[in-house]
């Protein structure tokens, strides 16, 4: 801190003006923070290991007595490696994907509050609404990264272990590989979009607390409870509105005639959850005292 070698104090030059592309820079900084964080990269790597694990088990046990059975579509993997993508995504849906979403979304605001960085962001100043939107977009991008990590790893592993070829649909019809790839891309997109509702729930919880772990756990609990309620036939009247109810509708993309109505319904439910909890997060975050 020698005073000789520092520039003299500059006087502020006039009122500050908003520079061009400010939101883009905020978003880029946010994405760098989320995607550059080692913990999050480890989570992505862990998800990418799931298809490798499943693929290896299937490869080793095929043509043996224990090789049959298992989760949906598993028996098709040996015939066509492309099915490994779907199998791995479905395997991750009940717990792993909600867990990872819970960690990243629950950390979004609460993590900054706990580190004390939230107050300094607001003092920069970053307007609260803009900060929340950037956080939400970063959570969505991370959701896309999770499904892409599983899908790409599944594709590579499946192709290496079992090869890829024409795809046999649920009905037994066969479609060319190009269409099979397109349908797989649709599956990945649907699963990714299915996580948006949970992301919004996590973001809302994240605005409620300065303890990130609490927001993370609460988010995972919502997904798990939703699954439990979905299994109670007494509640069939409300099943359609549950966060997780339509997640497995993704199989629709393997029908000869894909019913876009079914998929649209699932996405509409996600949009509704995202809208409600996004609005709750906004109303909370824009009014809350930042006393962390």
């Amino acid at each position: 801190m020698s005073r000789a070698d520092v520039a003299p104090v500059e006087a502020p030059a006039g009122p500050p003006t908003r520079a061009h592309g400010a939101f883009g820079r905020l978003l880029a900084s946010e994405l760098r923070l989320v995607l550059g964080r080692r913990r999050n990269l480890v989570l992505l790597a862990g998800l990418a290991l799931v298809p490798v694990l499943i693929g290896t088990v299937v490869l080793v046990t095929q043509d043996t007595a224990v090789g049959a059975g298992g989760p949906p579509f598993l028996d098709r993997v040996t015939g066509n490696g492309l099915f490994l993508v779907l199998t791995a995504l479905v395997a991750c849906l009940p717990l792993l994907l909600p867990l990872v979403m819970g960690i990243v979304a629950g950390d979004a605001v609460a993590g900054e509050a706990q580190a004390g960085t939230l107050r300094y962001l607001l003092l920069v100043p970053v307007p609260r609404t803009r900060l929340l939107v950037a956080k939400a977009l970063a959570v969505l991008v991370f959701a896309a990264c999770t499904v892409l990590a599983i899908a790409l790893s599944g594709l590579v592993t499946g192709a290496a272990y079992f090869g890829v070829g024409d795809v046999t649909l649920l009905s037994g019809d066969t479609v060319p590989m190009a269409e099979g790839l397109l349908r797989t891309a649709g599956i990945v997109a649907y699963v990714g979009l299915s996580l948006t509702g949970l992301g919004a729930v996590g973001l809302f919880f994240s605005t409620l607390t300065e303890v990130p772990v609490a927001a993370m756990a609460a988010t995972v609990v919502v997904a798990v409870v939703s699954g439990v309620l979905d299994a109670l036939p007494q509640l069939s009247a409300v099943h359609g509105a549950l966060l997780t109810h339509h997640w497995l509708d993704v199989g629709e993309l393997l029908r000869t005639q894909v019913d876009l109505g079914v998929l649209g319904q699932g996405l509409a439910v996600q949009a509704a959850w995202a809208a409600v909890f996004g609005a709750l997060a906004w109303s909370r975050f824009t009014t809350a005292d930042v006393s962390s």
Partner: peptide, 16 residues
Amino acid sequence: LPRVGALVEGPGFHPY
């Protein structure tokens, strides 16, 4: 606020 520099209740930065 762009014309205001502030340090409130200790520093807050990303540890990593």
